[in-house]
């Protein structure tokens, strides 16, 4: 039993997952399913970004969908209106994501808790309104069609679904790797300290503002790159992309998988995407299921799937360990179980 549990967390498991992802398009016959998987990976990259600021650093950013749209629109406007090739436009998406993230972060992160959530909600709405109304720049509510697909290298052609799937997979693996590096570094521990308590972090000598802004900018860059990829695969984009609902989708993905865990964002995104696919007609009314699900999850399983699994394993090990021995490390992705219970009283 213990070996089975350990296997889930071993590096073999990670390679196995990667291998599964690599053979997926070869096993699945329908190209549509590969396309759905590629889109799910794109969203997962954005959710990894949200995980950095909301999961690790504990700041609920409700403008995340807006930064996704900024990335997508950067690629769309540069390729369609200015004739840029995809890759330079894609790089610019990251730059814009960082610049806007920095600007918004500098103002919004001075605010705490509820003020931050409300402020970012407003920022998300401003982004949506600007995209919808600024017709000279964004084509308004018509949206932008015929966005350039990524140029291939040699024989590879990214307008086809399967090569694009591998491209997105490569980005996803890179995103997870970066998240893991951050999570295991001093920076990751700094973020977690900030989540547990601002005051605690400050008393440890952590520069709150600088670290929060850093987490915010990292997250917006993730979102903007994911948006750029989205523009490259769907090749159409409209103001709806900046709608709240996408931010809320991402919160649902993150919550199902588990805030502040390494594999949670991927698990949550894949599970919900495929559940939505499995029930035909659910797409439009998914919120009838998602809404109560969000509520039930935060009441009964606030740590999400991965988080619940990890803390269950932690308790199990603690029970089994002979008294007096040191508990084994449960890995860097261990969620902070004691997420400041009294936070509301202090806040």
């Amino acid at each position: 039993m213990n070996r089975a549990i350990d296997f889930f967390l071993s590096s073999t498991m990670r390679w196995l997952l990667l291998a599964l992802a690599v053979v997926f398009p070869l096993v699945v016959t329908s190209e549509y399913l590969v396309y759905v998987m590629a889109l799910a990976f794109v969203w997962a990259i954005a959710v990894y970004g949200m995980n950095i600021i909301t999961g690790y650093c504990g700041q609920l950013n409700l403008a995340h969908g807006g930064f996704f749209a900024i990335g997508a629109y950067t690629v769309a406007i540069l390729t369609v209106d200015h004739g840029w090739p995809f890759w330079p436009a894609f790089a610019m998406a990251g730059v814009f994501g960082a610049v806007f993230g920095l600007l918004v972060g500098v103002v919004s992160l001075r605010l705490k808790e509820h003020y931050f959530a409300i402020f970012t909600l407003s920022v998300g709405y401003i982004i949506y309104l600007l995209i919808d109304k600024w017709e000279e720049l964004t084509h308004g509510s018509l949206g932008i069609i015929n966005i350039a697909p990524p140029e291939g290298f040699g024989l590879v052609d990214f307008t086809e679904t399967v090569p694009f799937y591998y491209l997105v997979l490569a980005f996803l693996v890179f995103a997870i790797w970066v998240t893991r590096r951050i999570s295991e570094s001093l920076l990751g521990r700094t973020f977690r300290a900030i989540r547990i308590s601002d005051d605690l972090a400050q008393s440890l000598g952590i520069n709150l503002m600088r670290n929060k802004i850093l987490a915010f900018v990292i997250s917006t860059v993730y979102a903007a790159f994911a948006g750029g990829l989205y523009a490259g695969v769907v090749r159409f984009i409209g103001p709806e992309q900046a709608n709240f609902i996408h931010t809320f989708d991402m919160i649902a993905y993150l919550l199902v998988g588990g805030f502040g865990t390494l594999m949670g964002p991927l698990a949550g995104t894949l599970i919900i995407t495929w559940l939505t696919q499995a029930v035909q007609g659910l797409e439009e009314y998914r919120m009838i299921v998602f809404g109560p699900m969000l509520v039930l999850l935060v009441i009964f399983f606030p740590k999400g799937l991965v988080g619940t699994f990890l803390s269950w394993r932690g308790r199990r090990l603690a029970r089994q360990a002979p008294r007096g021995t040191r508990e084994p490390r449960t890995g860097a992705s261990e969620p902070a179980a004691d997420q400041s219970q009294g936070a509301r009283n202090n806040a």
């Binding site: 609920l60 809320f248 919120m287 009838i288 998602f290 809404g291 109560p292 699900m293 969000l294 009441i299």
Partner: peptide, 10 residues
Amino acid sequence: KIAAIGILLF
């Protein structure tokens, strides 16, 4: 906040 958002969507 997340629960409130859930109610809103529902």
